[in-house]
């Protein structure tokens, strides 16, 4: 049903959203000026925006992004290389799936990141700690979604493969994987989101590496606008990361 209002609100809604964000910042600026909000707790929004530049130039943000990206890269690859085969095994061996499915689900809900002190002991304060911890955190969704995706392949497609006398590996690469790919990728997206949270979070917690450490450093120096600007920057980077993943996912999904 074509609604007459739809054309109007296409721009009105995002405008309201963005406008509200700007209005909140403007209001904050005024409240700070008048002293209603304490300047020693909340910096001027304008000062935060100005510090963005300072941070990028002086604090070697690009280098830090690189460091975080390096840890992300290895974690993300490892998550796929470990998670997809496990998910496939759980699909193929139903008894195994029945046996450990609940465990994997419990793993997904467990606060695994808390184990980071354990890995500090094992690997010291190094990137390896961050990577290993992040892989463990990100593994469950990809395993679950791989199994789910493969199990959800329409039986008729498998029957087509059988009727063409396809072998096991042909069946896997030419039918099962392509058919399950959208679901598997949604698992990848979830896993990579977990990985990002974990990488930045542990960087912050153990004060090592890229963007997470930046926030920690600035906070410890009590650089108020700097801390806020760095948080803003990290939030921005993560949002971009999610948006890209989401684009890829919609692109992979077959059009209805």
């Amino acid at each position: 049903m074509a609604d007459a209002g739809a054309g109007r609100s296409r721009w009105a809604a995002p405008a309201l959203g963005a406008g509200s964000v700007i209005a909140i910042f403007a209001a904050l600026e005024i409240l700070l000026k008048t002293g209603i909000v304490n300047r020693f707790i909340v910096p001027y929004p304008s000062a935060v925006l100005l510090s963005l530049e300072r941070i990028i130039v002086e604090e070697n943000v690009l280098g830090r992004v690189g460091e975080t990206a390096f840890e992300m890269f290895f974690s993300c690859i490892a998550v796929i290389l470990i998670g997809v085969p496990i998910g496939t095994a759980l699909y193929r061996y139903r008894a195994l799936r029945r046996a450990v499915e609940d465990w994997v689900a419990a793993l997904a809900a467990a606060p695994l990141v808390l184990a980071f002190p354990l890995f500090l002991v094992l690997f010291g304060r190094s990137s390896l700690t961050i990577i290993v911890m992040s892989v463990i955190t990100g593994l469950a969704p990809i395993i679950i979604k791989t199994t789910e995706g493969l199990a959800g392949v329409r039986p008729v497609l498998i029957n087509v493969g059988k009727s063409l006398k396809m072998g096991d590996s042909q069946m896997f690469w030419k039918i099962l994987i392509p058919a399950a790919l959208p679901v598997i990728f949604s698992g990848i997206r979830l896993s990579w989101t977990f990985v990002l949270i974990s990488v930045v979070g542990i960087e912050f917690l153990i004060n090592l590496g890229g963007l997470g450490q930046l926030i920690n450093d600035l906070a410890e120096r009590y650089d108020l606008p700097g801390t806020y600007a760095a948080i803003l920057f990290v939030v921005g980077v993560s949002v971009c990361f999610f948006m890209i993943l989401e684009r890829v996912e919609t692109w992979l999904r077959p059009n209805p």
Binding site: S9, A13, P14, L16, G17, S20, V21, T193, L196, I197, S198, V200, G201, F204, L205, G212, I215, N216, L218, A219, T227, Y228, I231, V234, V235, S238, V239, F242, M243
Partner: peptide, 22 residues
């Protein structure tokens, strides 16, 4: 929903622990 949900949606999975200093 169209105006504000994208903000909630995209902020939801950011690493929350980094807001701790604030």
């Amino acid at each position: 929903g169209a105006a504000f949900e994208p903000y909630v949606y995209y902020l939801a999975p950011t690493p929350r622990i980094i807001f701790f200093p604030v």
